[in-house]
Simulated assay, not measured.
Amino acid sequence: MTEIGQTLKEAREQKGLTLDDLQQTTKIQKRYLIAIESENFDALPGNFYVRAFISQYAKAVGLNDAELLAQLDEETNIQIENPVEKEATTRTEAMRMEQAEKNDFLNKLINYLPTIIIVVVVVAILGTIYIVSFGNHSKNAASDSSSQTVSVSSESEKKTSSSQKASSKKASSAKESSKKASSKASKQKIESVSSDGSTFTYNVTNAPSTNELQLTVDGSAAWSAVSANGSQVWQGTLNSGENHTVSLPSGTTTITINLGNSNSTSLKLNGKTFNYKNENSTLTVRTITLNLEQ
């Protein structure tokens, strides 16, 4: 029996996190978190998930996941299928099947080649006849259409001029809208409304109609998730030096940000730094809610 489960549990308790907090942060079901802490790995969906869940749990509570996984390999018989070898085998089989299909297609093409040649010759003859006939018809119609050319050209020029004016107005309107959105984003103001444990709420005034949230990690790896109006739009783990920009859907009124390692994560909303760490700078895991007011 390993001590991995006990190590994770003690780290969680030291950070003052409940299993419900950890479930919300990692998105791992609570029953799997309980199984990990009691080292009942058979209750997890498979060996791959044993390693993945332990790694994600460790990062959320600030432990070195690589050391725990190494300990797991040494003290248990859990064997994870090598995804690289599996992928290589799958690709080889796919290449064999593709080559077999190509060979079968070439054999069929050779069998039908005489028929294809005959069809091509017939189509070429019919095409020549059509081109000759069309050329004679065009010569007869040319004299009738010449008198209409001047009036048609004049009407075409008028339509082109009108179209250019309309395009110019649209471009000008689009530039004006872009300037207004940029000006509004520069005036946005973020104010703290309330805090409860690891949950914080802010109001964002003068927010534009479309918003961008940039997450940057400097330090140990950090898992984060972003939701718009209650629907998750992005989640992932960023390593030190990495950043990711989330474009929120138009009409978003509430942004929810779950941070697994806030000590290493910096936020920018519409290009402006959001100093959320002013609220309890020692907290590692936190949930931030931004209420947008245009």
Rank of each mutant, 00 (worst) to 15 (best):
I54K: 00
A58T: 07
T25V: 15
R31L: 07
R51E: 15
A60S: 15
E74C: 02
G46I: 02
E39Q: 05
L63P: 08
G46W: 05
D73E: 14
L33Y: 10
E67Y: 03
A52R: 09
L33A: 12
I28R: 01
N47D: 14
V61R: 05
K27P: 09
L44D: 06
Y49R: 14
I80D: 03
D20I: 07
I78G: 14
I34Q: 14
F48P: 13
N82K: 15
A60H: 10
L68I: 00
E67K: 06
L68G: 12
V50S: 02
G46M: 06
Q29D: 13
E81K: 04
L69F: 02
N47Y: 11
E67F: 00
E37A: 12
D20M: 00
E74N: 08
D73W: 06
F53Y: 14
Y49C: 09
E39T: 01
T76P: 04
Q71N: 07
G46C: 09
E67G: 11
L63A: 04
P45R: 03
N47E: 13
E39F: 03
Q24L: 01
L72I: 03
E39L: 02
Q79G: 14
N64P: 10
A52S: 11
Y57R: 01
D73L: 04
R31H: 00
T76V: 05
F48M: 04
T26Y: 07
Q29G: 06
I54M: 00
S38P: 06
N40S: 15
E81P: 01
D73P: 06
Q71L: 15
A43Q: 11
A66R: 02
V61A: 06
E74Q: 13
E81A: 06
N47H: 13
N47P: 10
S55P: 10
Q56A: 13
D65K: 05
E37L: 05
F41E: 03
D42N: 10
R31A: 03
G62D: 02
G46Q: 10
L69A: 04
A58C: 12
D65A: 07
